[in-house]
Amino acid sequence: MKTQQRVALVTGATSGIGSEVARRLVNDGMFVILTGRSAERGQRMANELGESSHFVQADLTAPDGPQELVDATLEVAGRLDVLVNNAAIDHTGPMLDVPAEEIRETFETNTIATIRCLQAAGRVMREQDSGGAIINVTSRLASIGVPSMGIYSASKGAILALTKAAAVELAPHNIRVNAVAPGMTRTPLFEEWLASQEDPAATERGVSAAIPLGRVARPEDVAEAVAYFASETNTYVTGVSLPVDGGYLAT
Rank of each mutant, 00 (worst) to 15 (best):
Gly206Glu: 14
Val177Asn: 02
Ala223Val: 08
Val177Ala: 01
Leu189Gln: 12
Glu192Arg: 10
Asn174Arg: 15
Arg186Asp: 12
Gly206Pro: 01
Asp199Gly: 03
Glu204Arg: 15
Ala227Leu: 06
Ala210Ser: 15
Pro219Ala: 01
Val177Trp: 01
Thr238His: 02
Val244Trp: 07
Val222Ser: 05
Gly239Ser: 02
Glu224Thr: 11
Arg215Glu: 04
Arg218Val: 10
Arg186Cys: 00
Ile175Trp: 08
Ala217Asp: 12
Ala179Ser: 14
Ala195Arg: 05
Val237Glu: 10
Glu191Gln: 13
Ile175Ala: 01
Gly247Thr: 10
Ala223Gly: 03
Ser196Val: 04
Leu242Asn: 01
Glu224Met: 10
Glu192Tyr: 04
Asp245Trp: 14
Leu242His: 04
Ala161His: 07
Ser241Ala: 15
Ser196Asn: 10
Ala166Gly: 06
Ala227Asp: 00
Ala202Asp: 13
Ser241Gly: 00
Leu194Tyr: 09
Val180Ile: 13
Thr163Lys: 11
Arg186Thr: 03
Tyr236Asp: 05
Ser208Phe: 08
Asn178Ala: 12
Val226Thr: 03
Leu160Pro: 00
Thr187Pro: 03
Asp245Val: 03
Ala202Pro: 11
Glu220Ser: 12
Asp245Tyr: 11
Ala201Lys: 15
Gly214Thr: 11
Trp193Ala: 08
Ala201Arg: 14
Glu191His: 02
Val216Ser: 05
Arg215Met: 07
Ala201Trp: 08
Ala195Asn: 07
Pro188Ser: 11
Thr233Pro: 00
Tyr228Met: 01
Val244Glu: 02
Pro243Phe: 11
Val207Pro: 00
Ala209Leu: 04
Phe229Thr: 02
Leu189Asp: 08
Leu170Arg: 06
Lys164Glu: 06
Tyr248Asn: 00
Val237Pro: 08
Val240Ser: 01
Glu191Pro: 00
Gly214Pro: 04
Arg218Met: 14
Leu194His: 09
Gly246Pro: 13
Leu160Tyr: 04
Glu220His: 05
Ser241Thr: 14
Asp221Ala: 07
Ala217Asn: 12
Arg218Tyr: 15
Ile211Arg: 07
Gly247Phe: 14
Leu242Ala: 09
Ile211Ala: 02
Arg205Trp: 03
Pro172Gln: 15
Val222Cys: 09
Ile175Asp: 04
Gly183Pro: 11
Val216Cys: 06
Ala181Trp: 05
Phe190Ile: 05
Glu191Arg: 04
Lys164His: 13
Gly214His: 08
Phe229Gln: 02
His173Gln: 12
Thr163Gln: 10
Glu198Tyr: 06
Arg186Asn: 06
Tyr228Ala: 06
Asp245Glu: 13
Val244Gln: 05
Val244Asn: 09
Ala230Tyr: 05
Leu189His: 09
Glu224Cys: 11
Ala165Gln: 14
Glu232Cys: 02
